[in-house]
Structures are given as C-alpha cells and as structure tokens.
Simulated scan of single mutants.
Amino acid sequence: MASTIGQPLTRVLLSDQVYARVRALIISGELEPGDRLVESEIARQLKVSQAPVREAVKRLVHEGLAQHAPRRGSFVAKVSPDDASAARAVRLVIEELAARTVAERTAAVQPSAEAWDALREQVEAMREAAAEGNVGRFRDADISFHRAVCEASGNPFLPKVWAVMEPSLRALRVVSDPLFTGDWAAMAEQHAGLLAALESAGPEAAAAQFAAHARGDIPGH
C-alpha cells in the first residue's frame, strides 16, 4: 500500500521538474512563439518517459504559455498584434483601478503591512534578478508585483479578473516585453517608483502612473 501511494508522487515531482525546465525556456525566449513542443523529443533530451512531459505540457497550456491544436500537437503560445493590443487595453483598466483603490486605502491606513511587504518583496526580487541577468525570474517577479497590487486593493473582484487575464499576459509578454533590450535594473527601479506612487502620490496620480506603465509610456514597461 505504501509503495502504491509513493509512485504517483514520484511521477508528479518529475512532471514538476519538466514543467519548470520547459517553462523557463519559454519565459526566457529561448523557445519562441510558434515553436512546437514535441513531447517525444523533450522526453529524449531530459531522459524521462513521455508521461511526465505530457503532464508538464498540459500545465503550460492551462497557464497560457502554450497552445494545443488537435492532431497537430502543442506549440509555444503565438498571438496576433490585435490580441496584444486588446490585452493591453484590458490590463490598463485593471491596473488603473487597482492603483487608485490602493492609494485611496493608503489614506485610511490600509492595506495591511503584509500587503506592502508582498509588493516590496517583488521589487527586491526584480532588482536581484536584474543583477543576476535572470530574465525569467524578473518576469515572474514583474507579474507577481502587479498581481499583488490587485490583491492589495481590497476589491475581491480585481484579483479574480487579474487571474483570468494573467495567462494571456504571460503569453502575450505584455507585462515584460521580450524585445526589451534596455537596462533591467532601471526597469526594476521603475517598479519601485510605482510602489512609491501607491504609498504617497495620491489616488489620481497613482492611477495615472500605472496607466502610463500599462500603455508602455514608461520605458521598459
């Protein structure tokens, strides 16, 4: 009985490792939009069976980083410029509202210390990732920062809407543009500026700064 319980756990952990490896390649841009995820080839390179690879690819599809086409296979997510523009428009509304709400709550001695700590933690993670040259870690911290802003708003619907959008944002690279060739450390400091705006700039100023960030008006959006 103990042996039976242990076997699925081993398979899941192996799938997690495959998922993390392939996901890192997608986020870093080494696997490009439209590249096919050939399960047999991935399994061969990682020296595992196809079962954990299949599970890992399913997770990537669910997360929005990959797309599955019946009878054709799975591919790194590829989207049109129109879809990217539409996602940016929705993101702008979400971020502007979230920033305004957080700044309004700040005046009432809210959000909680834990919420501010979560935001500061992601800014520090971006700084560390920039210093390491770890683009994948930077992008994860970037999207986590914006998710944390929604959570700090106190509006229970904003995190839910963000959760619906997040797979698309990851796939579209809206949060972290893969073509960005500037200073990652400067981009981290731009997020520090966004955090400062939430703390002291006032609701309308904070909303305007986040809206500019979402539009890409701030370099390294």
Rank of each mutant, 00 (worst) to 15 (best):
V22E: 09
P219F: 02
L9I: 15
D183Q: 14
Q45H: 06
P52H: 08
M187H: 12
R100M: 12
V61I: 13
P8A: 07
A185Q: 10
P33C: 01
L194K: 09
I27P: 01
G136D: 11
E41V: 12
R59M: 02
A207E: 09
L194N: 11
V38E: 08
R139C: 01
Q50G: 08
A207Y: 06
H62L: 06
R23F: 04
S49I: 14
W162T: 10
F75G: 09
R88W: 01
S28Y: 04
E96D: 11
V79G: 10
R54K: 14
L172I: 13
Q209E: 03
I5L: 04
L179K: 11
A103D: 15
V18C: 13
A66R: 07
E95I: 02
G6Y: 10
L158M: 07
V57F: 04
A103R: 14
A171L: 03
I5Q: 02
P159R: 03
R91K: 05
A141W: 10
V164T: 14
H191S: 14
G154A: 05
L46D: 04
G202Q: 04
D83K: 04
A89V: 14
L37V: 03
D140C: 09
Q50V: 05
R127K: 15
A196I: 00
D140P: 02
A89N: 15
R88G: 04
E41I: 11
V57R: 05
M1W: 08
A108I: 12
F145D: 09
T10Y: 03
L65N: 04
M126W: 04
F145G: 08
D142C: 07
A141Q: 12
P81D: 09
S3D: 07
S85H: 07
L60T: 13
V93C: 05
